[in-house]
Simulated assay, not measured.
Amino acid sequence: MSGSRIKDITYEVLRSQRSTADIVIERDGRVLVRAPKSIPDERIEEMIEAKRYWIYKNLAEWRDLNATRVLREYRNGEGFLYLGRSYRLLLVADQDEPLLPKNGRFCMWRDLVDRGEIEAAKAAFRDYYIARGSERIRQRVDYYAPKVGVAQRDVAVRELGNRWASCSPNGNLAFHWKCMMAPQTIIDYIVVHELCHFHHLDHTDAFWNEVDKVMPAYGERKEWLRTHGAGLDV
């Protein structure tokens, strides 16, 4: 991946075997050009110039959405999301695991917070979401794969940076652990979205037609994720 700048727009270029080029605004606000290996740099610069207004508009929307990002504190009563529901945090002195759901709450070792080990507290949530997501998302992939018309795939739930999901060159799927904070309907949308990329690597009309075949109301779920995605964090 290489970085470039045209006037006031800084962007990165990711080249691959894809046949078309597009521009996306990543969840961290980066401008990313996904392009075929054969396309010259001059053509990419022309794309950036042609899409300048679109880039401005979408970056402004990104700033507005991220202005509402929720900064959670590790204290009694703070709400943490799981499958779209908010569960209050309860700090406890003794239990078998660093983080356990119990009686409608997330119970966490108090020592993690008292010692100021916030990264360890975050890791406890991450590990919980990975463990739960590995089973649940696997089930949803198995359910939707035949509906999309693709073979069942290996599935992993892990840290993916600024992507909700990804597909390796050999066809294995990975999903961000933060997906488990979203409602089930949104997780299903992410699953279908990624599976449809086996038919079309880009986001052309043909791709969205594939998504629509399986999930006609995908537009509402796509918009929910765009609007609320910044709040899916610990």
Rank of each mutant, 00 (worst) to 15 (best):
residue 7 K to D: 12
residue 186 I to E: 04
residue 171 G to S: 10
residue 147 K to M: 09
residue 107 C to L: 01
residue 212 D to T: 14
residue 147 K to C: 03
residue 96 D to P: 11
residue 68 T to M: 04
residue 219 G to T: 15
residue 23 I to N: 01
residue 230 A to V: 06
residue 35 A to G: 02
residue 166 S to N: 10
residue 90 L to C: 08
residue 191 V to G: 08
residue 232 L to N: 10
residue 2 S to L: 09
residue 163 R to K: 15
residue 203 H to T: 07
residue 116 G to R: 06
residue 55 I to K: 03
residue 96 D to K: 12
residue 167 C to D: 01
residue 155 V to T: 04
residue 119 E to T: 15
residue 194 E to C: 03
residue 130 I to Q: 03
residue 47 M to H: 12
residue 162 N to I: 11
residue 171 G to A: 09
residue 173 L to A: 04
residue 8 D to T: 11
residue 207 F to C: 04
residue 222 K to Q: 07
residue 205 D to Q: 15
residue 128 Y to S: 00
residue 99 L to A: 06
residue 101 P to L: 06
residue 131 A to Y: 09
residue 109 W to H: 01
residue 25 I to R: 04
residue 60 A to N: 13
residue 134 S to R: 13
residue 30 R to N: 02
residue 24 V to A: 15
residue 125 F to Q: 01
residue 226 R to T: 06
residue 27 R to N: 11
residue 14 L to V: 06
residue 105 R to P: 07
residue 186 I to A: 04
residue 231 G to I: 08
residue 2 S to N: 14
residue 119 E to S: 08
residue 126 R to K: 09
residue 196 C to N: 05
residue 32 L to H: 05
residue 42 E to Q: 12
residue 58 N to Y: 15
residue 166 S to H: 06
residue 7 K to M: 09
residue 68 T to I: 12
residue 165 A to N: 11
residue 33 V to Q: 06
residue 18 R to M: 00
residue 73 E to D: 02
residue 201 L to A: 11
residue 169 P to I: 00
residue 212 D to C: 15
residue 48 I to T: 00
residue 26 E to K: 14
residue 57 K to R: 11
residue 221 R to M: 09
residue 75 R to H: 07
residue 28 D to Q: 13
residue 2 S to T: 08
residue 105 R to W: 07
residue 170 N to P: 05
residue 212 D to R: 12
residue 10 T to R: 11
residue 161 G to D: 02
residue 80 F to R: 00
residue 103 N to M: 10
residue 196 C to M: 05
residue 76 N to P: 05
residue 34 R to P: 03
residue 94 D to Y: 13
residue 60 A to E: 13
residue 178 K to F: 10
residue 217 A to P: 06
residue 59 L to Y: 00
residue 188 D to Y: 05
residue 223 E to R: 15
residue 120 A to G: 00
residue 62 W to T: 02
residue 232 L to Y: 11
residue 50 A to L: 08
residue 104 G to A: 01
residue 119 E to N: 09
residue 228 H to S: 10
residue 233 D to M: 12
residue 132 R to D: 02
residue 196 C to Q: 07
residue 171 G to T: 10
residue 17 Q to T: 13
residue 219 G to Q: 14
residue 228 H to W: 11
residue 82 Y to D: 13
residue 102 K to S: 13
residue 167 C to M: 06
residue 45 E to Q: 10
residue 102 K to H: 13
residue 55 I to N: 00
residue 71 L to E: 14
residue 219 G to P: 10
residue 213 K to P: 10
residue 143 Y to C: 11
residue 120 A to M: 01
residue 189 Y to V: 00
residue 58 N to T: 11
residue 165 A to H: 04
residue 63 R to N: 11
residue 210 E to R: 03
residue 102 K to M: 04
residue 8 D to Y: 08
residue 33 V to E: 02
residue 41 D to H: 05
